[in-house]
Amino acid sequence: MSPPPQHLTGDKAGIEEFLDRYDDEIFSSSYSASIYISRILTLPADKPKVFVIGETGIEQELAAENVPFIGGTDPSYRRGITPNDFGQIAAGEPALLDPEVGVVLVGLDFHFNYLKLALAYHYIQRGAIFLATNIDSTLPSAGALFPGAGTISAPLIRMLGGTEPTSLGKPSQAMMDAIEGKFQLQRHRACMVGDRLNTDIRFGIEGGLGGTLGVLTGVSSKSEFLTADLRPAAYVDGLKDLLLAK
């Protein structure tokens, strides 16, 4: 069991200043997924495309790595399924099932629907690799919890008999390896900061980082930080406290 975390406090600045200062060093799960697809996966020459369930952020990262994709924010996928669609999908018609798709990448999608789910399932059944940007079950926003990216891949997992996607977000160590490769990271000099024990803090501990810091502005509570078997070395009420922590 980890020792009890230290509580650090402060009262100035905010997350916006932090993000502005370190914008070039932010490594998202969407970026991790794009790196994994473009530099680690070896896709067949005739199946280079990614079918995206997700929003603009995923598309931007794939485009930056010159990875071809379909789906995502394309308005033609933001509709209900029709009786004709069922027949075309079942028959593998190229009009709906692109034969060049070799990967299904699932992230947080605010326009998720039955059509996208059906297409993703049939792509995977036809051999496409099943990836997820992350498997977070919840998304903290406006002081409450909402469905996270993991809830989007959940119905696919159930349809596939429990087959899990390869997750490129925390706590996947594939993401840690990608970060280390990009930034020449010295793990013993790095600290993982996050609000969720089972992803953020686990990511830092299992990745062998020099420290872990919990923040109380998201999912895990103070009591969890203090009593869980896997817990951070320290915790703060919010990221702004880092500027005055001693």
Rank of each mutant, 00 (worst) to 15 (best):
G148N: 00
G150H: 06
G143E: 00
R126I: 12
T163N: 05
A132D: 01
T166L: 15
I124G: 05
M159Y: 11
P147V: 09
A149T: 03
L139I: 06
A128Y: 04
I157D: 03
I152M: 15
S153T: 14
L160Q: 01
L156D: 06
T138N: 12
P165C: 11
P165A: 13
I157L: 03
P147G: 04
P140L: 09
P165W: 07
N134A: 04
R158S: 12
S167E: 10
I152F: 12
A132E: 03
L156P: 07
Q125F: 05
T138S: 14
G148E: 00
A132I: 05
S137D: 10
L160P: 01
P165H: 10
F130L: 02
T138P: 07
G127W: 04
F130C: 01
T138M: 09
Q125I: 12
G162V: 15
D136H: 09
N134D: 13
G143R: 00
F130T: 00
G148A: 05
G162N: 13
A128S: 12
L156K: 03
T163L: 14
D136A: 12
A128Q: 04
G161M: 10
G150I: 03
G127L: 06
P140V: 14
F130D: 00
L160W: 01
P155W: 10
P147S: 02
F146I: 07
Y123Q: 05
G143K: 00
P140Y: 08
H122C: 08
F146V: 06
P165E: 09
N134P: 09
T138H: 10
L160N: 01
T133V: 09
G150A: 07
F130W: 01
P155G: 11
G127E: 03
T166Q: 13
N134M: 02
P155V: 11
H122E: 15
T151Y: 02
E164C: 12
F146L: 13
P165M: 07
G162S: 10
N134I: 01
L156N: 03
S153Y: 10
T133G: 06
D136W: 09
D136K: 10
G150W: 02
L145W: 02
I152T: 14
R158G: 03
P147E: 06
S141G: 04
L145A: 02
M159W: 08
L139Y: 15
L145Y: 05
S137M: 13
I124V: 15
G127F: 04
T138A: 14
T133P: 02
L139P: 08
L145I: 06
T163H: 13
P140H: 13
L139T: 02
R158F: 10
A128V: 05
A142F: 14
Q125A: 12
A132S: 15
R126T: 06
S167R: 06
L156C: 08
L131Y: 00
P165S: 12
S137E: 14
T133I: 09
T163R: 15
A128M: 04
D136V: 06
T151L: 11
G127I: 04
I152E: 01
S137F: 10
D136N: 12
F146Q: 05
S137G: 15
T163I: 15
S153W: 04
Y123D: 02
R126D: 08
L160D: 01
M159Q: 09
I152S: 01
A132P: 05
A142N: 14
R158H: 15
P147N: 09
G148C: 07
G161T: 08
R158V: 14
G148L: 03
P147W: 06
A154S: 14
G143D: 00
N134R: 01
Q125V: 10
